[in-house]
Write a protein that binds this DNA or RNA. Structure first.
Lengths: 258, 258
DNA sequence: ACAAGCCAGTCGTACGACGACTGATTTTAA
DNA sequence: TTAAAATCAGTCGTCGTACGACTGGCTTGT
């Protein structure tokens, strides 16, 4: 060992190589280089890029998985997951019953959000809610999906509370439960009939009207009614789907509506 | 969120061996077989116990580390870490204003929880609520902190909803507003006067009475009143503390109550 | 008694090998 | 010609071997 009087360096590596590769990749995820749904570089690619062995790459990937940042598919690759909502583990949402339970929590939060929005909304936020409702109507008339505009409407309400925690919570639930194709579900197929969706959007209008009038009680009641209706529709469709799957027929899918 | 995905059975294969070893070890940590500070079995021991290769063991350990459950010391072994206040991003809760915003979210959830608890509580849960209230009174009389019993009372209500998401959320929200020593705030020092705390516990009794009577409306109204009062007390104490810190005096700290 | 060296145990990294999985492409059969 | 089956290349999962780095305890020498 050629010891020269080098300046005293740390005696041990502050982190392992695996941790450093994880840090590098998770920083790239955090900063948007890799977005939810994107495929990370393959193991051989990371090995080459980072100049480490496959062992280190695999351990780094294991860490990313355990941290919930990615999921790995055998033979395919590793994909970035959407951010987890704070305090809630959406991986537990696997049955209709779980969804209904989550909806129940959501009712409590969004009902309150509607009341606060009625007190605190700005004209700009109000205009954005109006636009979202118009967009939903247009999309329904064209036979297109109204999911994005639906999400926007609810997000605007969360923002109008002026409380970042309501907005954060809504953002996380939004990204986690909208992308239906993530869930390995027995598809409750087909979009609901347009009249159902127009009706649900009618309920949006009642909510908006109360918010516009700065009437928190009515806003709360309207939102509660709206989400309770959705919950009921889901419950009924689920029961029908269960009966019909026994008969080999498909039920309705109300999940595309608010 | 009006758009809900209907889930189904997982289509994917079973988990990897590394994930299964992690599950086994994390279950042992969760259940108390290994406690914070304990040393986990060495890699060779786990290899023998689980009948897997060292690669699998190391990947499982990597996962446990990334999940924050353990830390590994090179040449020594792997040790169980104390539980972190996980989930909700508590790092954002740094000012009184953040606490108040978080309380606002909490009001929405716990108000709804009280209503659901009135509908779904069991006699055992009711008894536990009673006990928590008694404990709070005893602690107040002895001049001791009633924070734990206070948390218990609210947690019982969340459990009585029969919806795991309410309970999960409360576990996280509860820690956000109680552990005062986490906050870099102008210290609102000293326990509030006992009469304030008796009064707050009186409010607990109104909530419990409504739950006992299976009256969801009254349960909701009582909980909202109780938490709004806490919010107001915190706000006022904060303002007084601000004035008094300009005068070099300390104000009251009501955050130890619900 | 204290310091230095040694040793066994443990973790970190690297490599080679083979099987399992996946989707795309090619070959075969109808 | 088209559809089904087989093949292939790429990717991930597991196993085993090997060596270096680190740590604490024990033994030996001063």
């Amino acid at each position: 060992m050629d010891h020269v009087n080098a300046p005293s360096l740390p005696r041990r590596r502050s982190r392992s190589l695996a941790q450093e590769v994880m840090n590098d990749l998770s920083e790239k995820i955090r900063s948007g280089v890799y977005r939810p749904g994107d495929k990370l570089p393959t193991e051989p690619e990371v090995m080459a890029e980072q100049g480490v062995s496959r062992t280190v790459v695999r351990e780094a990937m294991s860490r990313l998985q355990a941290a919930g940042l990615v999921e790995t598919r055998h033979g395919i690759g590793t994909f970035v997951l959407p951010p987890k909502p704070a305090g809630l583990d959406l991986m537990t949402v696997v049955t209709i019953r779980d969804i209904l339970a989550m909806l129940e929590l959501r009712i409590s939060i969004e009902t309150e959000a509607a009341g606060l929005a009625a007190l605190r909304r700005t004209p700009e936020q109000l205009a954005r809610m109006h636009r979202a409702i118009e967009t939903i109507n247009e999309n329904i008339s064209k036979g297109e999906r109204s999911v994005d505009a639906d999400f926007q409407f609810h997000l605007q309400i969360a923002q109008a509370t002026g409380n970042k925690y309501f907005e954060d919570f809504y953002r996380h639930l939004g990204t986690a439960t909208i992308p239906r194709d993530r869930l390995d579900t027995p598809q409750l197929s087909a979009e609901p009939a347009p009249n159902y969706m127009f009706r649900a959007n009618r309920e949006h209008e009642y909510i908006l009207s109360a918010i516009e009038r700065k009437d928190p009680e009515m806003a709360r009641a309207s939102m509660r009614m709206h989400l309770s209706n959705s919950s009921e529709r889901l419950k009924r469709a689920s029961e029908q789907a269960e009966e019909k799957s026994q008969e080999g027929t498909k039920g309705k899918d109300p999940t595309a509506e608010s």
